[in-house]
Each structure stands twice: as C-alpha cells, then as structure tokens.
C-alpha cells in the first residue's frame, strides 16, 4: 500500500485555492483514502524538493497539502504553479516512506481501556491485540500535537469510538484507538482516545533529526513488547 502508481488520469480531481494571503492549498476529495493520501504526500515531497524561494512549510493532511510562504519573498501565483506542477507530473520516484515498528505493552495500567475495547468488539483482549498488531497502518497526517500521527485504517471490529469525556491527562507513549484511527501520544496531553497500551519508544524528540518518528506516508506496525521491556518512565 501507499505507493503511487500512475494510472490513466481521469478528469482533474483536485483543485488549488488560496487559504489566506500566505498559504496555498491543493486538495482532493475529502476522504480518508490511501490512494488520495499517497498523491498528497507525493505532491508535498515534490514541492519540498523544489526548494522554492520564500516557502516556509509544506504541510500534507489526509486529502490536502498546504504550502506556507512569506508573501514578501514569494508570489502566491508561483507557489500555485509549483503545486500544479507537483500534482500533474506523473510520479516516477520510488516510494520514500519508511516502515516503523512500535513495541507496545498492552493492557493493565498502561492500557486501561483494553477490556472495554474487547467488550465493544465482543472478543477477548488477546484478540484485540492480535487485530491491532495484524494491520500495517499508514501515517495519514501528523498534527494535533507535535509528533502525533493519525494512523489508519483500524480493523472495523475494534474501531471503538473515542470516549465521550476526554481524559484530562493521557500519559506520554499511550497507544489509543479512535474509530478507524490509531495513534501514539508523543507527550502527556488531554485526550479522548481509547487507551489499549503504551510504548517506551520516544516518538518525538526535538534534539533528534528528524525530531518526529512518523512522517506523512510512513507505514507503521505495532507489536507486543517482549516481557521485561523497559517502562515508559522518563518520557516527557
């Protein structure tokens, strides 16, 4: 999954719009779709590689990529053209995404909602873990918190909706499910996702290059952490 293949291109299925005086956005149909997201990631990568003068940030989402520019150094029309070229050029380069494996200690105090998700799914906790680890997920978008990756698509059986009342503090490293999405909290934060486990992996570290473990388009797998694995203590 996740590779960009150049299919016979149908009628234009994207549009470009100004989003303020310092940003231009390319968008496809608003759907969570690996094919659309792959085109978003490819277009973002191409604009980034172009190193256009005055461009400050290239931010891919599920179905759209926004290019931020300094309006005194770059012209909106030029950024527009760069995005147009990025989306109309057939993809030839290899898929640059990486695969990241996250060891997780499921259940117990670190996954306080695992039993609830099992009840929702009508199966055992072990079966929830099996299903959560059986999928290779795609990073659709990084947002909400620094380093927080929206991963999809979760097995529908365990896709429990988020809690009605979010927790005031979710510990760093918590692995949660919210409907068809799963993710790892990079830092302690309020949150409503169903927490099924925790990882000791630091998914974000400002002193590391790159600082975030997850980039748009990357593939992610979870696996049960071996017994005696380090605890999540010490993460911020």
């Amino acid at each position: 999954m996740g590779t960009v293949t150049d299919r016979a291109r149908p009628a234009r299925d994207w549009r470009i719009r100004l989003t303020g005086d310092a940003a231009v956005t390319l968008e496809f149909a608003p759907r969570i779709d690996p094919g659309i997201n792959a085109r978003v990631v490819a277009a973002a990568a191409r604009v980034t590689a172009g190193r256009h003068r005055g461009v400050r940030d290239v931010v891919p989402g599920y179905h759209a990529v926004t290019v931020y520019f300094d309006p005194l150094r770059a012209d909106a029309g030029r950024v527009w053209t760069a995005l147009e070229e990025a989306v109309t050029t057939p993809a030839v380069e290899a898929d640059a995404s990486r695969e990241v494996v996250i060891p997780v200690r499921y259940g117990g105090g670190e996954g306080p909602d695992l039993e609830e998700v099992a009840a929702f799914a009508g199966c055992s906790a072990a079966e929830v873990i099996r299903r959560h680890t059986a999928t290779t997920y795609r990073v659709y978008m990084v947002g909400y918190l620094h380093g927080f990756a929206y991963l999809g698509i979760v097995d529908p059986r365990i896709a429990m909706p988020r809690r009605e009342t979010p927790r005031l503090v979710v510990p760093a490293g918590s692995v949660g499910i919210a409907g068809r999405q799963t993710g790892v909290y990079p830092t302690a934060a309020p949150g409503g996702w169903r927490l099924i486990g925790r990882t000791a992996v630091r998914v974000f570290d400002a002193l590391r290059h790159p600082p975030g473990l997850f980039g748009p388009g990357d593939r992610v797998r979870f696996e049960p952490a071996p017994p005696g694995a380090p605890t999540a203590g010490g993460m911020t």
Binding site: V58, V142, L145, H146, G147, F204, P211, P216
Partner: peptide
C-alpha cells in the same frame, strides 16, 4: 519555528 509543521510542530 517554521519548517516543522508537517511533523505537527506549531509555529
């Protein structure tokens, strides 16, 4: 802090 919004880092 420009250049890291694709990793979720606010400006």
């Amino acid at each position: 802090r420009w250049g890291y919004q694709h990793l979720g880092v606010p400006v």
